[in-house]
């Protein structure tokens, strides 16, 4: 029998499921191979050399061997553990939200190094400030962009006229912004304020560091959050499960009178 083929890849761990015999089924997103699912043999035993290297939100240099049905993790070297992010409940819940989206948008055998880099960059910025929600908005917007689903922000998607600086409407279904004249039958159609359009255009043009410094009032923040997470969830084809824990933490942090 030929020896198993081995390969190395830089990965970020997204999640794992415990299997029999202290094994783990690990889902990771790799820089060069897209999403990969692989087995960590005996990884939950205290004596395992994989122990602690396979926690979600850890950047790992993986050595893998091709197995019969699934690849086997033979070695894992931690490159970045994001330990400050993981020492904070908001940091963990935001990081896991990103992980769920990368799992949903990333595909096996379909490398997307831009998506990989977006995840790393967003975790890095989140680690410096776990309270801000702007890194999540930047991530959602650019997740659409690197997935080829970038919403149109400059012309009406129906009649193609250039949009005036005005309130418009938005729908993930038709691919972005609509002028007030065009009225396609569309259940996803929603109003879009001029302020929100401006922030979307800014997210388009700026890097994550600048975008994350943006501050806004609650009503604009919640318009953007709702618009982007609805769009992401529309393309995902299902509800984003980790969103409910994020919202729970947000609600818990409000003063009693707002609950």
């Amino acid at each position: 029998m030929a020896p198993p083929r081995t390969y190395r890849c830089e990965s970020i761990i997204l999640s794992y499921t415990p299997l029999d015999e202290a094994d783990l089924l690990v889902t990771m997103y790799t820089r060069d191979r897209g999403k990969v699912r692989a087995i960590g043999k005996g990884a939950r035993r205290a004596t395992s050399k994989l122990m602690g290297h396979l926690e979600p939100l850890t950047v790992v240099q993986m050595s893998m061997a091709n197995g019969r049905s699934m690849d086997i993790i033979s070695q894992a070297e931690v490159l970045q553990s994001f330990s400050e992010l993981k020492g904070d409940l908001d940091g963990i819940s935001k990081g896991l939200y990103l992980a769920e989206l990368v799992d949903g948008f990333g595909a096996e055998d379909s490398p997307n190094p831009n998506l990989y880099q977006l995840m790393i960059d967003t975790l890095t910025v989140l680690q410096a400030d776990t309270e801000s929600d702007m890194p999540l908005r930047f991530f959602e917007f650019h997740l659409l962009q690197v997935s080829g689903l970038m919403p149109e922000l400059y012309h009406c998607v129906e009649c193609r006229i250039e949009l005036e600086p005005d309130a418009h409407r938005f729908s993930p279904n038709v691919g972005g912004t609509l002028c007030l004249e065009c009225n396609p039958e569309d259940a996803h159609l929603r109003p879009l304020s001029l302020r929100a359009l401006k922030v979307l255009r800014l997210l388009d043009r700026s890097g994550i560091a600048a975008a994350s410094k943006l501050t806004m009032d609650d009503s604009l923040a919640s318009e953007l959050k709702s618009l982007l997470s609805t769009t992401v969830s529309y393309w995902l084809g299902k509800e984003i499960r980790s969103n409910s824990f994020l919202e729970r933490l947000h609600k818990d942090s409000l003063p009693e009178v707002y609950k």
Partner: peptide, 10 residues
Amino acid sequence: LPVGGSLEYT
């Protein structure tokens, strides 16, 4: 306790 471990396997 090692990170990633489980009490069950300690």
